[in-house]
Simulated assay, not measured.
Amino acid sequence: MSAFILIGIGCDDIFVFFDIWNQEKLEWLRKYQNKLLTENANMLDVPLNQQKNLSKLKRSSSQHLFLFKHSKEIRKVLLSEEALIEIMSNTLKHAGSSMFVTSFTTSAAFFTNILTNISFIQVFGIFIGTCVLIYFAITFTAIAAFAVIYEKHIQNMISHVLSMCCTDFVNKSANSTLAKLYHRFSLACRNFRNYIFSHFMPLIIIKLRYVLVLIFLLMGILGLIGSFYYPKLKVPSTQKTALFLKDNPMEIYEFSMKNQFNGYLKEDKRLFTYPAISFVFGIRDIDDGYIFDMNDRGRLHLMPLYLNRQITLEFFKNFIKHLGTRKDLFLSNYDLEEDFKLFYELATDDILVAKVINDR
């Protein structure tokens, strides 16, 4: 799962970088074209009555690069050091802030898994959060360098190879019916995309702006209520997967009743119902195992038990009395009370205490 998450996040960063890279290339070409138009106008000393036509020409140049007759001229201009430096600078400036914010918030969300007490989830969150930040650094260094190398060398090599191998095939298929259908289909898809994102969606957003804000405001309020009031957002406390709350009828057996029906018998190595119950006292609930080592169970922290003290005996008496009320575990508490009487007599006569000391 970690690999799929990292691949998805890395692809998003690379897509954002190259999308802005292509936009900055077009923007640089438009500025370069406007610069040439201005220089030509100054050299020719354009009259005032023709300056309006020149401004219209500049506005149209922002949509079409009509000064360049074919792609070789465009590549020759773009491959200059001045052009590459300016394009890369603008790309990093515009892509850097958005990519950093998304990468930082994503890694922070994964780092919050440290708050849980499940070691597997802690390690998973730290690993993914660190890898997201590393991906951001790789995108701004290695991927940026690859973009320059691709523009200067790889793209030129690919175009030469394709022109040598596929010239005849392209010439034959250019006039075929299938090629014309493909061209029409791609043109229709492009026009549909432009209509959706350039006309329809802006119109809907402007017309329904108050309704959309109200809907998402209500969704945000409901999300806050669900996170902080009911049922509250809690970090995982068990390795069991829960789709509902623990008191939901669909989850009661998994979280509340399953342990009451299943046990493990070492002699027969089989599961059985209503197992024998063992209680261990004198151990503190401290987990000091190393969270990044799944096999490190830590140390047992013992606490002293003074069996000859009255308060200790009262604790055991109340504990066994309460345990005897568990009808789901015992039919009656008679046997428990009888066992406790023997325990009480041994503890009172200091026989049990002496035996514990001798065993140590």
Rank of each mutant, 00 (worst) to 15 (best):
L78V: 00
P236A: 15
I158K: 14
P47A: 00
G282T: 07
L115M: 09
F244Y: 07
H199A: 12
T273D: 03
L265Q: 15
V101D: 06
S186D: 02
K69H: 03
R297E: 15
F192E: 12
G96K: 09
M257V: 08
Y229R: 04
A41M: 06
A109S: 11
Y150D: 02
A83K: 00
F255W: 12
K31P: 06
L346V: 04
R209G: 00
N171S: 10
C131R: 06
E254R: 04
M294Y: 13
L162V: 09
E39A: 15
I149N: 07
I85P: 00
T112I: 13
S332D: 07
F197Q: 09
L36P: 04
L346A: 06
V123N: 00
I357R: 13
I252H: 04
N53L: 14
P275V: 09
Y253F: 13
R299M: 12
F15R: 07
I225E: 02
L313I: 04
E267V: 15
H199V: 13
T241W: 14
F68Y: 06
F228T: 09
K152Q: 03
S198Q: 13
G10D: 11
E337Q: 11
H70C: 02
S97W: 15
L313C: 07
C165G: 04
N333D: 12
D168H: 13
A144M: 08
N259Q: 14
Y334I: 14
N175R: 03
D288R: 11
V213D: 07
Y334K: 06
L233E: 01
R75C: 13
V101F: 14
C165Y: 06
Y334Q: 15
T273G: 00
K69G: 02
T91V: 08
I138L: 13
I121K: 12
D288T: 07
N194L: 12
L243H: 09
Y253N: 04
F104V: 02
T238W: 07
L271D: 03
H183Q: 10
M257G: 04
H160V: 07
N333F: 10
K93S: 09
K258I: 12
F261G: 09
R209P: 00
I221K: 00
S332H: 01
R309W: 02
G96M: 12
H322Q: 02
I204N: 08
A137S: 08
G324K: 05
H160S: 14
G220P: 05
